[in-house]
Simulated scan of single mutants.
Amino acid sequence: MSGFSFHQDDLDSPDVQALLDSHFAQMRSNSPPDACHVLPIDGLRDAEVTLWSAREDGRLLGVGALKQLSPDHGEVKSMRTAPDALGRGVGRALLHHIIGEARRRGYRRLSLETGSTAPFAAALRLYAQEGFVPCGPFGGYADTPFTRFFTREI
C-alpha cells in the first residue's frame, strides 16, 4: 500500500503498546477464556515471534506478527488496525507483509486462529479473500465452538 511503512519489533513504542493493550482487552472481552489465545506483550517478545507496525508519516496504523511453528510453518498473530485507520487496507497490507516474510523464511504454510462471532467478521472476510481455507486445530490449540482455524499454502 502506498505510503505505509513497516517497522520490525516496535514493541517499546508507547503507541504500539497502547494499541496492543486495546487489542488484548477487546480479545478478552469478545472471547471465552478457554478460546482466547491473544499473546501478551511478553509473548510477542519471544524469539519465535516477529511483530511489525504499519505506519504512515510516523503515525501508527496497525500491527501484526508472525510466529514460527516449525521450519516450514508459520502462524499469523496479533493482527490489529488502529481505530482511526479502519477501512484503509491496513490489515491487508500487514497480512501481505507477513506472507512475504513467511515466503522469505522458506515457510510452505501459514496458519491462523481467530474467533467466529460478529466482532471477527472483517478478519474472517480478509482471510478468506487472501486464500486462507478452514482447517483443523494446529499448534496445540483446542477446538471450541468459538474458534476458527485457517491455513494457506505459500
Rank of each mutant, 00 (worst) to 15 (best):
P119T: 07
I154Y: 02
H23Y: 15
F4T: 13
L86T: 13
R152T: 02
Q26F: 03
G91C: 08
T50W: 10
P40T: 07
A35K: 07
G89C: 05
T50E: 12
L126C: 08
D21V: 05
D15W: 06
V76S: 06
Y107H: 15
A122M: 07
R109T: 14
G100M: 08
R55Y: 02
V63Q: 08
N30W: 12
A35D: 07
F120T: 06
K77D: 09
A25L: 10
L60K: 02
A85V: 04
G106N: 07
D46F: 03
L61H: 10
A25S: 12
A93C: 05
R105V: 00
G43M: 04
Y107G: 06
S70G: 12
A35S: 15
Q26C: 10
L86H: 13
P119M: 09
T147Q: 08
T144F: 02
P145G: 03
P40I: 07
D9S: 15
P32H: 05
T50H: 11
R105F: 00
F138A: 04
P145D: 02
I41K: 10
I99G: 01
L61V: 01
V49S: 11
A142E: 10
S29D: 13
G3Q: 10
F132P: 08
L110M: 07
S2A: 14
R108P: 00
T81F: 02
V49L: 10
H97M: 11
G136E: 11
I99F: 01
S70Q: 09
D10A: 11
S5L: 13
L69N: 08
S78N: 10
A85K: 09
I154R: 01
F132N: 09
R103F: 01
G58T: 06
A82N: 03
T151H: 13
T151C: 14
F150P: 01
P83Q: 03
R88L: 14
L20E: 12
F149R: 05
D15H: 10
A65K: 03
H37Y: 15
P145H: 04
A118L: 13
A128W: 00
Q129A: 15
L126R: 05
G136I: 04
Q8I: 12
C36V: 13
P33L: 03
S31I: 08
V90W: 02
P33M: 03
L94K: 06
R103Q: 14
L112M: 10
M79I: 14
S29R: 09
E48M: 13
L60M: 08
F138K: 03
F6M: 13
R59P: 00
R105G: 11
R104P: 00
I154E: 05
I154F: 01
R108E: 13
F24N: 14
R125W: 00
A128F: 00
V90M: 04
L94V: 09
S111T: 14
A85N: 06
H7V: 15
G106H: 03
D143V: 12
M1H: 12
P134F: 07
A18P: 00
V16L: 11
